[in-house]
């Protein structure tokens, strides 16, 4: 793994992260519909997490084995949520 060649690269990423965090607040002031707001909020969170992982954790330079190590728990997390989702949203809420 090699660090960024340009020092500005890390700083630019930080600026993006800050801008996206401010984006949360802007979305709240604008007052968009709830479902849209939730999509925006978690979309921003996902982009921020990917920016940190890709650039600061240098995932873009890592080998496939690292992706495999990360993919397994992420898949298990997705399975946990997706399998229980119908039960929670349909049964637990009395639908």
């Amino acid at each position: 793994m090699e660090p960024e060649k340009k020092g500005l690269g890390y700083f630019a990423i930080w600026v993006w992260l800050v801008a996206l965090t401010v984006g949360y607040l802007v979305e709240r002031f604008i007052g968009v519909p709830r479902h849209v707001a939730l999509a925006v909020i978690f979309g921003i969170a996902l982009v921020k997490a990917l920016l940190v992982a890709w650039n600061y954790m240098h995932l873009k330079h890592e080998s496939r084995i690292i992706f495999v190590i990360l993919l397994i728990p992420i898949l298990l997390f997705a399975i946990l949520v997706l399998l229980l989702l119908p039960d929670i949203t349909l049964v637990h809420r009395g639908n």
Partner: peptide, 15 residues
């Protein structure tokens, strides 16, 4: 987020 930036700068200076 800022602490992540300073951490990656520390790593950059290792090189």
């Amino acid at each position: 987020l800022t602490s992540s930036y300073t951490m990656v700068k520390a790593f950059e200076n290792v090189k």
